[in-house]
Design a protein around this nucleic acid. Structure first.
Lengths: 187, 187
DNA sequence: ATAGGCATGTAAGCAGTTACATGATTTA
DNA sequence: TAAATCATGTAACTGCTTACATGCCTAT
């Protein structure tokens, strides 16, 4: 089981509803996990049935009510046990890099457009993660926070997201520029 | 279908057998796709049935014979069409970052060990990719190759692998150091 | 002799994707 | 009044993972 632990880890940061989690997982939970909305609702149901999270109804006005979840004691134990388990290799699957690998075959224009688009997305995610880092560390600077801050886990995972998105942005731009220049000279 | 195009893209670099592809995909095809060995054998069978790759028997001495595959004209068309298709979002799933996110919960020692191990793997992959880049560009320097080289696709995808592994290595080291220092002061 | 690399699969089960479905409320 | 956001699911399918299976050859 896989998504299970990602959901538990996300719920360490606070109580969230299924819908809120879809937003968090949409940006990638600091880019370490991707999941579709339907998966999240299903997983929350299972987690609650297994007693690893506890849900409570939140009545809202002007909006549909929602159920928010928090990790139970059993859930914390499960997460701690998981952390000591040998890590599986990184799972990475990216259409876009496959396309770039095959870039010499065909018309580069649609590929360049996709690279530009991805670069924009990466830049937006990077900005979001950097903002999250500032929020997490408060008044402290990074070094100080990593030494003495209360919870460094979310900070470190967010740093991973920053690194990934920064490189993704720059790689997309570099690749787009390269393909553009080559296309320009060929026409 | 997903693995399909990754296999076709990998076979652009030359004829490979199922077993050879397992090695290439093990290192991640420049880290853009992961696939288990059994998937590759199954996918090659399907690709051949669909006429997108053609296999031929290679007789070896001192080793079992093997079947190597090359992309057919239809396969090239399929890849070119795929490249023009809108890109799906990056799919990333990493146990290790989930564990780091939850790092404040439990004994940091096993997690630090996993981070060190991953850092080593990333360093090894990085070295491999950098060597691949040197091989691809031959006598030219990078800028020159990207401008005038014959096939830049594999070079660009390999650059993506380098960027990812370099950041992975550094992030693992930074996270391990952070957790170590905090554990040291607490004990 | 035994371990490890080369070489190729099958079968069962589950996780994840795609498509479909509903309905209220706010904003343009 | 149409579109967007909030909110939560079900059902069918398929792709992926895990476990199992086989056999030859080389190096230690």
């Amino acid at each position: 089981m896989a998504l299970r632990h990602a959901v538990l880890a996300a719920l360490l940061d606070g109580e969230y509803s299924g819908y809120q989690l879809t937003k968090i997982f949409d940006v990638g939970v600091s880019n370490f996990w991707y999941a579709a909305p339907q998966q999240l609702y299903a997983e929350l149901t299972k987690l609650e049935a297994d007693g690893l999270v506890a849900g409570r109804e939140v009545v809202q006005r002007g909006r549909p009510n929602k159920r928010v979840f928090q990790v139970t004691r059993a859930g914390l134990d499960e997460l701690a046990a998981f952390a000591a388990t040998p890590a599986k290799p990184l799972l990475l699957r990216d259409d876009l890099v496959v396309k770039v690998h095959a870039a010499d075959l065909a018309d580069p224009a649609p590929l360049i457009a996709q690279l530009r688009e991805r670069a924009e997305e990466a830049a937006a995610k990077l900005a979001f993660f950097e903002q999250t880092l500032r929020r997490l560390r408060g008044d402290l600077d990074e070094e100080e926070f990593l030494r003495a801050g209360e919870r460094v886990g979310p900070y470190l995972s967010c740093l991973a997201g920053c690194r990934l998105e920064r490189e993704m942005r720059d790689w997309c731009r570099q690749s787009a520029r390269t393909l553009e220049e080559r296309a320009g000279r060929r026409v």
